[in-house]
């Protein structure tokens, strides 16, 4: 078996090497009982996402690449991945696309690409204080002032100890 047929939620068919199962746990399980020429329906994956996923898979030659650094060390994703192509790939996605892609990779059990997307989102949070995060992401405060103060005073030395490093 060299090729399999994936069907996006819009019904578009895409042919791809069966080696894709190296990257996707979902496809790997499907192939256990797969009969040739059978279509594999991906009801939760749009055509656009599927194209991006395949682009990623082909670039990595259907092999699992090195995961992003964890925890990340910089707000720039390029500093946290070993392959610069990964950073370029994920940087060109907009906010809707990246959330969609996370959902699609979650459905496909495709850990490597999902990790890349998650690391990209984590980069958005890095080095930002609470107010900045709230402002940028339109979050209204939910904690009462007392609870927030308590949470802040829970670990004051944590911040100081680490910042001295």
């Amino acid at each position: 078996m060299s090729e399999i047929t994936l069907v996006s939620k819009e019904g578009t068919k895409i042919q791809i090497s069966s080696q894709f199962s190296n990257l996707s746990g979902f496809i790997h399980n499907i192939l256990q009982d797969y009969q040739q020429n059978e279509d594999i329906s991906l009801a939760s994956v749009s055509f656009i996402n599927l194209q991006m996923i395949l682009e990623y898979a082909v670039h990595h030659n259907f092999q699992v690449p090195q995961p992003p650094r964890c925890p990340i060390t910089s707000p720039n994703i390029a500093d946290n991945v070993s392959d610069p192509w990964d950073a370029e790939f994920v940087n060109r996605l907009n906010e809707d696309q990246i959330i969609d892609l996370v959902t699609a990779t979650n459905f496909l059990d495709m850990k490597s690409l999902m990790d890349l997307c998650l690391a990209k989102i984590a980069c958005m949070f890095k080095y930002k204080d609470i107010e900045t995060l709230r402002k940028e992401y339109g979050i209204t405060e939910e904690f009462t002032a007392e609870i927030e103060e308590k949470l802040k005073s829970d670990f004051p030395w944590a911040m100081e100890a680490e910042s001295n490093d």
């Binding site: 992003p68 964890c70 925890p71 990340i72 999902m114 998650l118 690391a119 989102i121 984590a122 980069c123 949070f125 890095k126 080095y127 204080d129 609470i130 995060l133 709230r134 979050i139 209204t140 405060e141 939910e142 904690f143 927030e148 949470l151 802040k152 829970d154 670990f155 944590a158 911040m159 680490e162 910042s163």
Partner: peptide, 19 residues
Amino acid sequence: EIMVYLNLPELLEVRIVNK
């Protein structure tokens, strides 16, 4: 899963954002 990529001081900071 996203929080996995943050370190301890960042986790302690970010958790105060909201519930």
